[in-house]
Computed example of a mutant assay.
Amino acid sequence: MSECQSFAPVAAKDSRLLILGSMPGVRSLQLGQYYGHPHNRFWPLMAQLLGYQAVPAGYQQKLQMLLANRIALWDVLGYCQREGSLDAAITGEQPNDLAGFLRQHPQLTVICCNGGKAAAAFKKYSKTIDLSGITVYNLPSTSPANARWRLPQLAAAWQIVQTTADQANKNP
Rank of each mutant, 00 (worst) to 15 (best):
P38F: 12
I111Y: 02
A145Y: 05
S22F: 10
A168E: 11
N114G: 01
W158P: 01
S143P: 04
L151S: 08
V55Y: 00
I71P: 08
R27G: 01
R148D: 13
Y125V: 02
L77I: 10
T142K: 02
L45S: 09
G78I: 04
A8T: 12
I19W: 01
N146P: 03
N96I: 06
Q94F: 02
P172I: 05
A120H: 11
V161I: 15
L20I: 05
Y79L: 06
L49M: 11
F101N: 02
G116P: 04
Q107L: 10
V110K: 07
A157Q: 13
G78F: 06
M65H: 10
A121I: 01
T109N: 14
T163F: 08
A121M: 09
I19C: 08
P140Q: 04
A12Y: 05
S143M: 04
P172F: 07
A12V: 11
P9T: 14
N40W: 05
L77D: 07
F122K: 00
K117C: 02
T128E: 14
P172S: 11
A54M: 15
L49A: 03
V55K: 00
A118D: 02
T164K: 08
K117H: 12
A11L: 14
Q107I: 02
D14Q: 15
M23P: 09
Q104F: 06
R70V: 00
M1Y: 12
C4Y: 12
A47F: 04
P44F: 04
M23N: 07
E83S: 14
V10W: 03
L29K: 05
Q53E: 12
L151A: 01
E3Y: 12
W74L: 07
S2P: 05
D166A: 13
A119W: 03
F7A: 08
Y125F: 14
V26P: 02
G115S: 07
D87T: 10
N169A: 03
G51C: 03
I134V: 00
Y59C: 06
Q159M: 05
